[in-house]
């Protein structure tokens, strides 16, 4: 199987075909009757009051069609549902996903923690355990198929899979407040080897944990909300241990470049109004050092 999307596509083609036939039938009848039986013609129309067998026919026929569609949907559900393996022999990789207002946190076995960007090994079933500390979110990566709500007070499980490497863009699909729009995610599927390399890198503390940038981070409120392994901090916002390695910032609102990073830190509200990160007054020198340091955290 190519991906967890495949069974859904197949089913959608079947349902689409059924729907198209029905729609065509109804529209053709509608147009033909409108044109064909249009006034003026002499005399009264035949006063037909109904037809029992016809009624029966157009009750049974849809029933039958729907029964088939329903059965097929159960099959598909089995292919993408709880225990789905997607024809892969590999044991599933468990990743815990935490939806925050307004960013996704990914926690890997082995301690790696990232934000808004998840890497997965191609060819391995992924089992996401979804939870939320605040409101209901919903993780959706269209190219991987099904989505699942992220509901506070319960842990939902979502199985995804892709055989081919690639970078997929996704988002939070359940309205969760002001910046629901900028709660986007990037999922990077890569060959097992590359993935393992990435994972070990992410799990390890950054190479540099001291210097001017680190001092600015430690010396300002940043530490009150962010963690840089080896430097310290508290995990309120995204873990920044390897923020430099990410493609985007703050749920996709900015591409992760030095300029963007500076701009974001200088005034988050300008790019993501409502984001739960305040504007922190910093001297240009401090800001430069900080940006240089964070950017270096690959």
């Amino acid at each position: 199987m190519l991906s967890s999307l495949e069974p859904i596509v197949v089913l959608s083609l079947v349902v689409g075909a059924v729907a198209a036939v029905i729609l065509a039938g109804v529209l053709i009848a509608l147009v033909v009757f409108t044109v064909r039986y249009r006034d003026p013609r002499p005399g009264l129309a035949p006063q037909i009051h109904g037809h029992r067998t016809l009624e029966l026919a157009w009750t049974i026929a849809p029933l039958a069609l729907l029964a088939i569609v329903f059965a097929l949907s159960l099959v598909t559900l089995g292919q993408i549902g709880r225990g789905a393996t997607f024809g892969s022999l590999e044991p599933p990789l468990r990743i815990s996903v935490i939806g925050h207002q307004w960013w996704f946190e990914f926690r890997y076995p082995g301690g790696a923690v990232t934000a808004n960007e998840a890497h997965i090994p191609a060819g391995v079933p992924i089992e996401l355990e979804l939870s939320s500390p605040d409101v209901i979110h919903d993780l959706w990566v269209p190219e991987l198929g099904a989505k699942s709500d992220v509901v506070p007070g319960q842990t939902n499980v979502l199985r995804l899979f892709t055989a081919r490497a690639g970078t997929f863009s996704g988002a939070c699909a359940e309205f969760c407040g002001l910046e629901h729009a900028w709660m986007r995610v990037v999922v990077v599927a890569e060959p097992r080897a590359d993935f393992d390399r990435w994972l070990t890198a992410q799990a390890a503390p950054p190479a540099v944990t001291a210097g001017p940038g680190a001092d600015v981070f430690r010396g300002n409120v940043c530490v009150a909300c962010h963690v840089i392994a080896g430097v310290g901090g508290t995990a309120v916002g995204p873990d920044l241990s390897h923020v430099g390695a990410r493609r985007t910032l703050a749920g996709g609102v900015l591409a992760n470049t030095a300029d963007a990073l500076r701009a974001w830190i200088a005034d988050p509200q300008r790019y993501k109004p409502g984001a739960l990160m305040p504007k922190v007054p910093l001297s240009d020198a401090d800001l430069a050092a900080l940006v240089a340091y964070l950017g270096s955290l690959k």
Binding site: L5, S12, V15, L66, F70, T76, I80, K147
Partner: peptide
């Protein structure tokens, strides 16, 4: 209405709704 009804049925098909819901 028939168009809307048919898309409704597609939403009632769970696997399809898991893709299209909230979209």
């Amino acid at each position: 209405f028939v168009v809307g009804g048919l898309t409704g049925v597609s939403l009632a098909v769970v696997p399809l709704d898991l893709y299209t819901t909230d979209s």
